[in-house]
Deep mutational scan, measured.
Amino acid sequence: KRPMNAFMVWSRGQRRKMAQENPKMHNSEISKRLGAEWKLLSETEKRPFIDEAKRLRALHMKEHPDYK
């Protein structure tokens, strides 16, 4: 399984929150809205998620050196 990218790290928490606030909303609609919100974030707002994704990628490479 591939490590999560920055968007996936961010959206994991956001998706849960949005699903709780809008229980009838379909997952595909939640995904569209999350994608639009992510695009509006500044580089500074994205930075912690980018850093976490880098950390996860490095850990994955260490644990699975033969993974392509």
Rank of each mutant, 00 (worst) to 15 (best):
48 P>M: 02
11 S>C: 12
48 P>Q: 04
13 G>E: 15
53 A>V: 01
50 I>Y: 15
23 P>Q: 04
57 R>V: 07
38 W>E: 03
43 E>D: 13
18 M>E: 04
20 Q>Y: 09
42 S>I: 01
58 A>N: 12
29 E>L: 03
28 S>C: 10
2 R>A: 14
48 P>I: 06
32 K>N: 09
42 S>H: 01
16 R>P: 15
67 Y>N: 10
66 D>E: 12
18 M>Q: 05
40 L>E: 11
3 P>H: 06
17 K>D: 08
49 F>T: 00
35 G>Q: 15
58 A>Y: 07
48 P>Y: 02
21 E>C: 01
5 N>R: 02
56 L>T: 06
68 K>C: 11
9 V>E: 05
45 E>P: 01
5 N>L: 02
20 Q>N: 13
13 G>L: 13
46 K>W: 00
65 P>D: 14
6 A>I: 06
28 S>N: 14
62 K>R: 10
56 L>E: 10
45 E>N: 01
28 S>L: 10
40 L>G: 10
35 G>W: 14
8 M>H: 09
16 R>A: 14
38 W>N: 03
25 M>E: 07
38 W>C: 02
30 I>K: 02
4 M>C: 03
5 N>F: 03
24 K>V: 09
60 H>K: 14
58 A>T: 11
48 P>G: 03
59 L>A: 12
58 A>I: 08
61 M>L: 13
59 L>P: 11
43 E>P: 11
22 N>K: 03
44 T>Y: 06
64 H>T: 14
1 K>D: 15
62 K>S: 12
29 E>R: 01
25 M>A: 07
35 G>E: 15
15 R>A: 13
46 K>I: 01
4 M>Q: 07
18 M>F: 08
65 P>K: 13
57 R>P: 11
8 M>S: 09
7 F>D: 01
47 R>I: 05
10 W>S: 03
27 N>L: 08
58 A>R: 09
9 V>Y: 01
48 P>L: 00
61 M>V: 13
44 T>K: 13
20 Q>T: 08
57 R>F: 03
41 L>V: 04
60 H>A: 15
27 N>F: 09
65 P>Y: 11
52 E>L: 02
67 Y>I: 15
48 P>F: 03
55 R>N: 06
13 G>K: 04
40 L>P: 01
53 A>F: 03
10 W>V: 00
25 M>I: 09
39 K>T: 07
17 K>Y: 08
10 W>C: 01
59 L>I: 11
15 R>S: 10
7 F>S: 01
11 S>E: 13
31 S>N: 14
68 K>L: 15
50 I>M: 10
36 A>P: 02
39 K>E: 14
68 K>F: 08
50 I>T: 06
3 P>I: 05
60 H>L: 09
65 P>Q: 14
9 V>W: 00
53 A>D: 01
1 K>G: 10
15 R>K: 05
38 W>I: 00
29 E>Y: 00
64 H>G: 12
2 R>M: 10
68 K>P: 03
56 L>V: 07
43 E>G: 05
31 S>K: 12
64 H>C: 13
14 Q>S: 05
24 K>R: 11
64 H>W: 09
58 A>C: 09
49 F>S: 03
23 P>D: 03
28 S>Q: 11
7 F>T: 00
4 M>A: 08
42 S>Q: 04
28 S>V: 10
30 I>M: 11
19 A>G: 06
5 N>A: 03
38 W>S: 01
16 R>G: 11
42 S>F: 01
68 K>I: 07
39 K>Q: 09
67 Y>S: 13
3 P>T: 13
64 H>V: 12
17 K>G: 04
59 L>H: 10
59 L>S: 12
23 P>C: 05
61 M>Q: 14
14 Q>E: 15
50 I>G: 05
49 F>N: 00
5 N>K: 02
12 R>G: 12
14 Q>P: 04
24 K>F: 11
25 M>S: 05
10 W>H: 00
60 H>P: 13
33 R>A: 04
6 A>S: 03
64 H>D: 13
6 A>E: 05
41 L>N: 03
17 K>R: 11
24 K>Q: 14
38 W>K: 04
4 M>L: 09
5 N>W: 03
56 L>Y: 05
7 F>I: 01
60 H>Q: 14
52 E>R: 00
68 K>S: 14
54 K>D: 14
60 H>F: 10
61 M>H: 15
61 M>R: 10
24 K>W: 10
22 N>Q: 06
11 S>Y: 04
30 I>F: 00
37 E>S: 07
36 A>L: 06
41 L>M: 12
60 H>I: 08
4 M>F: 05
25 M>N: 03
47 R>F: 06
21 E>L: 04
60 H>D: 15
52 E>M: 00
62 K>H: 10
45 E>Q: 11
28 S>G: 06
3 P>S: 11
58 A>W: 07
7 F>P: 00
12 R>I: 11
23 P>H: 02
67 Y>D: 15
5 N>C: 10
52 E>H: 03
54 K>E: 14
21 E>S: 04
41 L>G: 01
65 P>N: 07
42 S>K: 03
42 S>M: 02
2 R>L: 12
40 L>W: 04
23 P>E: 04
16 R>E: 15
41 L>F: 03
56 L>D: 04
17 K>S: 06
55 R>V: 05
54 K>G: 06
7 F>A: 00
47 R>G: 08
50 I>C: 08
26 H>F: 04
16 R>D: 15
29 E>D: 10
64 H>R: 12
11 S>Q: 07
37 E>Q: 10
23 P>T: 06
35 G>I: 13
54 K>F: 07
66 D>K: 11
68 K>E: 15
38 W>T: 02
56 L>H: 06
30 I>C: 05
11 S>D: 06
56 L>A: 07
21 E>K: 02
11 S>W: 00
22 N>I: 06
22 N>R: 03
52 E>A: 03
49 F>V: 02
41 L>W: 00
16 R>M: 13
68 K>V: 11
40 L>K: 13
17 K>A: 10
2 R>N: 08
22 N>M: 02
1 K>S: 14
25 M>H: 00
32 K>D: 06
32 K>P: 02
4 M>I: 14
65 P>R: 11
20 Q>L: 11
10 W>I: 01
21 E>P: 00
13 G>A: 12
27 N>E: 15
3 P>Q: 14
58 A>L: 10
12 R>P: 04
62 K>M: 11
16 R>Q: 15
24 K>T: 11
32 K>R: 12
22 N>L: 04
15 R>N: 04
45 E>V: 04
64 H>S: 14
35 G>R: 10
3 P>L: 08
54 K>C: 10
34 L>R: 01
32 K>Y: 05
67 Y>C: 14
55 R>L: 05
16 R>V: 14
15 R>Y: 11
42 S>N: 08
65 P>V: 11
16 R>L: 14
16 R>K: 11
56 L>M: 08
29 E>N: 07
66 D>W: 02
53 A>C: 04
21 E>T: 03
43 E>L: 07
37 E>V: 04
55 R>A: 08
13 G>N: 09
